[in-house]
Design a protein around this nucleic acid. Structure first.
Length: 350
DNA sequence: AATATTTTCAACCGCAGGGGT
DNA sequence: GACCCCTGCGGTTGAAAATAT
């Protein structure tokens, strides 16, 4: 099972692609499409295996690919999504149009990991590194004295916001996006990331405070979100009849429950959860199977996430969140928005 | 300017799942 | 159910480029 053919059957070129090879591949796909990748090299006159052609196309030749360095916002999104999805690069890439999973993986391994360590965060466990560990990392990269941007600081605390939202321990008019390692004690004294949630343990808050209320459905969702058992149909987005464009183009402050909440959607809205047995080797298995856990038994997920609120203050919530998700031109995925709205929901109902 | 070291990133590799037979 | 083929994913490698000495 699984042994890919082609590369073993004949002598194939390896290594970097020449411009001539690129041209052949592009011409072939432009004329005939890729069809079955295993037959592409032969048809295109390339001495490569189909797998190599596919990779070259996806990672380099495919139209619509962004080139160049990642923007700060893109980095932020990657950090957020990695906090929830882990090394599911393809799913992260699906939220960043024009970026490939390979690119994102490389960025994470070469750049973001380093930055996180320099901020005292273990990129793998998301736990705070000991002082000595931080010192070691800094010593290893002593040449890199560039201060981390404010935006980066802000986004480092985003997972904490999600965690915080789950604990319902912050009032709407409090600043949400603090650097958890420098300002949190002064500005948001009630900030208590909970290890039970586990997204962003505060260095001085190793124990989870007692639950202020019984676990809400949303809290449960957050627990799910933080586990490898989450299954999200990224392609479906949040709602079949609500395009991502709607989120991308609407100013957050204009988002009212009536006009923008995707009411009338199917109850799962493209998001399913499965039990732990539905993952394999850390991979997600998208499933509609009946074994999936239905999140809300008597109301839709959307009713929970996007409640009809009587409080006009509620609709200002997106404004509070703008600090982290500068609205506007940057693509804002439904999934990222989903995370934001989970936080919003908890605060509203908290 | 030459060399050593580090970083970046394109590409490879092996594995797993899906679909067809 | 077993086998084969194909695609897709994530970890890893290693050459090229950048930077330091």
């Amino acid at each position: 099972m699984g042994r890919h053919s082609g590369c073993y059957k004949q002598k194939v070129r390896k290594g970097l692609w020449s411009p001539e090879e690129d041209e052949k591949l592009m011409k072939h796909i432009a004329n005939y499409g890729h069809g079955c990748w295993s037959s592409v090299p032969k048809q295109a006159g390339l001495q490569r295996c189909g797998k190599s052609c596919r990779l070259r196309w996806i990672n380099y030749l495919r139209p619509g690919l962004k080139r160049g360095t990642f923007s700060q916002q893109e980095e932020n999104i990657i950090i957020e999504l990695h906090a929830v999805l882990g090394n599911r690069w393809s799913q992260i890439a699906a939220q960043l149009p024009g970026r490939t999973d390979n690119e994102i993986k490389n960025l994470w391994n070469s750049c973001i990991k380093k930055k996180l360590r320099q901020r005292g965060i273990d990129p793998d466990t998301r736990k705070h590194l000991s002082e000595t560990q931080v010192d070691e990392d800094k010593a290893l990269t002593v040449s890199d004295t560039t201060p981390v941007s404010n935006e980066f600081d802000i986004m480092l605390s985003y997972p904490a916001m999600v965690s915080l939202a789950a604990n319902r321990s912050i009032a709407p008019n409090q600043r949400l996006f603090q650097n958890p390692f420098t300002e949190v004690h002064d500005v948001v004294p009630s900030f208590r990331p909970c290890n039970q949630i586990g997204l962003f343990p505060h260095p001085q808050s190793s124990s989870c405070p007692e639950a202020t209320t019984s676990l809400s459905a949303i809290h449960n969702q957050l627990l799910f979100l933080n586990q490898s058992t989450m299954v999200v149909d990224m392609n479906a987005g949040l709602c079949s009849d609500t395009t991502s464009t709607e989120f991308e183009t609407n100013s957050c402050s204009n988002l009212s429950p009536e006009t923008s909440h995707p009411r009338g959607c199917s109850s799962n809205g493209g998001i399913q959860y499965s039990d732990a047995g539905n993952t394999s080797n850390g991979r997600l298995i998208s499933t509609q199977s009946s074994s999936g856990i239905e999140l809300m038994s008597d109301s839709s997920l959307y009713d929970s996430i996007f409640p009809l609120s009587e409080d006009p203050e509620d609709d200002k919530w997106p404004e509070y969140l703008d600090g982290a998700f500068a609205v506007s031109s940057e693509p804002k995925s439904n999934f990222v928005w989903f995370l934001v709205m989970i936080g919003r929901q908890n605060i509203i109902t908290g």
